[in-house]
Design a protein around this nucleic acid. Structure first.
Lengths: 231, 231
DNA sequence: GTCTATAGAATGATAGAC
DNA sequence: GTCTATCATTCTATAGAC
């Protein structure tokens, strides 16, 4: 029940061999199958949680026998761990957009844009991540304490410098970051609730655009920045 | 695996007999034991999810044999359902604070205050709720479509009227509500991440106050409202 | 590498004594 | 009402044939 023995992976950025074709030791077929399993696993873990998702159903969804799944991923935990770490890499992508802008309004706006895009493109990944953190981060605690912590500290410093320069209002940068994370991820993690309140309809292009615009508008104005007119 | 047959409870506000002592058919001892089980269950469901939490461990935590738990709650699903519905009632409490103020700034500020208090007082309940919604709301779908939907529609109308009167900026009320929900609940659902980034320390009184103040500041200013000076 | 059959362990629920 | 002993089921993981 407890998912002990989870310290079997201490890496920060993994999954090179799956993301690109750089690992010559693994054939293309092998990677293709692993990808199919990972996609199925992400979906099932997102919908049912770690214990709720069974290797049998993941294998069914991936279109292979269960024993074959265990050939590629020795344990359910190893598979889960891989799924969670894949989200990290995607999450880190968004972090970059924060840095490529020097004025606060552009930096925050493009960071929010990117985070909203990820919520739309990878809702299942976002859910798995939320689940993992909500349950005390048994698998990725190490990552929280290192990579995420370092990233957060450095961005807090950037935001603080903007405040010190009088470019934006006085707030604790931490809470601004949490608000951006919480709000953008809400459209992925709570998509079921959002759609129910949207008359059971999934967000279309316009709805996503409107949501992104309003989120940026409220947050940017909320810290004393002006929003780009109709972007 | 799927938690079918979950339509066994179609009520909107339940649990009167547990919350107060109004049900004479149930003794005080009985209610006390049920409460102990519910507290334990909330904790375990929050930490491990529906499938991850076992009736054995819930019983252990409540200090009773497993068979006794099944005497009070015939099935694991019935127990889970009760836990989820308890959160509804708490959540609805906060809704009232929205209505007791007529100007937008006071209404939104006190709603955010209340939601932050709930995140602090009932983090496990918030997590169980988040889990339930993330997994497609198999148990409380009915509630989402009725009570929550009605509440949301009526409050959207209130916010829209404020906008129409020129009291606040033009935004889609829906997204303002989502931002409030997401941000306030983040401090409960992601408390593990928040604490990790807080040097492993739990938020103390000052930290909660600071978080609440910044959340109110950003959101109120974000929609063009001014914030009460040092409240 | 693939897959059937099955071992081995854990879990939800209950029978039945007290 | 309480609790021990146990059943029936389900799940992860693997052995071993192909």
């Amino acid at each position: 029940m407890k998912r002990q023995n989870v310290q079997f992976l201490n890496v920060k950025r993994v999954r090179k061999s799956v993301a690109d074709g750089s690992n010559f030791k693994q054939s293309a077929t092998r990677n293709k199958k692993k990808e199919a399993i990972l996609v199925a696993a992400e979906k099932m873990f997102a919908d049912y949680g770690f214990r709720g998702a069974t290797t049998q159903v993941i294998a069914d969804l991936a279109g292979i026998p269960k024993a074959n799944l265990h050939y590629y991923f020795p344990t359910k935990e190893a598979l889960y761990s891989q799924v969670v770490q894949n989200i990290f890499d995607i999450w880190l992508e968004a972090a970059d957009s924060f840095d490529q802008n020097q004025d606060p309004a552009s930096a925050l706006a493009s960071y929010i844009d990117k985070k909203m895009e990820i919520s739309r493109a990878h809702p299942n990944g976002s859910k798995v991540w939320a689940n993992e953190v909500m349950h005390g981060a048994p698998i990725i605690q190490d990552y929280l304490e290192t990579t995420l912590k370092e990233w957060t500290i450095s961005r807090e410093a950037v935001i603080q410098s903007w405040i010190d320069e009088g470019l934006m209002d006085q707030i604790d940068p931490k809470h601004l970051l949490y608000m951006i994370w919480a709000t953008t991820q809400h459209y992925a993690d709570f998509v079921h609730q959002v759609e129910t309140l949207n008359d059971g309809q999934a967000f279309d292009d316009d709805a996503w655009e409107a949501a992104t615009r309003d989120v940026k508008k409220i947050i940017l104005r909320g810290v004393g920045l002006s929003v780009g007119d109709d972007k």
